[in-house]
Design a protein around this nucleic acid. Structure first.
Ligand SMILES: [Mn+2]
Ligand SMILES: [Mn+2]
Ligand SMILES: [Zn+2]
Ligand SMILES: [Zn+2]
Lengths: 145, 145
DNA sequence: ATTACAAACGCAACTTAGTTGTGTTAAAAA
DNA sequence: TTTTTAACACAACTAAGTTGCGTTTGTAAT
């Protein structure tokens, strides 16, 4: 289920935040709202589009809180800049992030997509390696470009 | 074939650099030599261990040259810091990097390994996505830890 | 409604990765 | 030996991300 099917208005967003133990400040409501219309965001892009604050620290601390509560997750960019994207509803929580989808980065428009339809295949490592997490990123051209 | 089987002494290293159109300066010989004894290196780690220069720019430009010539390749770190590792002999060149192995990052000792034995599986993307490159990174604990 | 507490905010100051330009040095080709 | 060009060093810069601290504000208890 996609999260934005649940979010009809600002009030729903505030409730969603409260359910995750996050206070509904004007900025954090606006930030979560912004994630509904963007497949992924960098701190920079957020600063450009958000009205409620221009403070980098405030943005980073909100992102940190959202991630810890299982609302968003990190996606490494093509240039090693961190991007952030929504988690599926019910997928992640304060206890653990459980998604195992791949990420697609468009070389043309620089968008980053969470491709839920494509799961990360099982990887068999050589003797002695203990696997704890896997990241799989595909680069190329997205359908819109 | 592993590159360090070929490199018996400093002179072999110099020849190898020249074959790739890179001048044999004391620093670049020392740098290439350093890669033989390290599974991967960051700019920072290089600066700590190299005697011939402490200049960040010199290091970055050497890494850039090595990568362009197909001698080393980039590996994104767990914290989005770039690491660098040797390419297999005959695998890559000035024309193209052709490796498709996975990378393993040890959470304990922070080492990054190129695991040549494990190839990146084929990924089938949804309609409309054009694949150009794939990165697969596994995090966990390495055999030595 | 008032109060009390913790979460969130804003500001300043900092660290570190990575880049760009320019003049100088030195390796290799002519 | 001379010429060419890659490589180097230095300074100055951009941008990501972090830390500490005093202030403000949301929320829940009284
Ligand atoms: Mn994702
Ligand atoms: Mn590798
Ligand atoms: Zn695109
Ligand atoms: Zn290890």
């Amino acid at each position: 289920m996609l999260i934005f099917e649940l979010m009809k208005n600002q009030n729903d967003i505030a409730v969603y935040l409260n359910q995750h133990g996050i206070k509904k400040t004007a900025f954090r409501v606006e930030l979560l709202d912004l994630f509904f219309s963007n497949s992924s965001l960098t701190q920079e892009e957020i600063k450009e589009q958000i009205k409620e604050t221009k403070n980098k620290v405030t943005i980073y601390r909100a992102l940190e809180a959202f991630e810890k509560k299982g609302i968003i997750h990190k996606v490494p960019d093509i240039n090693n800049v961190m991007r952030y994207a929504l988690c599926q509803v019910g997928c992640c929580s304060e206890e653990a992030h459980t998604h195992n989808h791949i990420h697609f980065i468009c070389k043309s428009c620089k968008s980053t997509y969470c491709i839920e339809e494509v799961k990360i295949p099982n990887i068999n490592l050589p003797e002695g390696y203990q696997k704890e997490g896997v990241r799989l990123t595909v680069e190329g051209v997205c359908p819109r470009c």
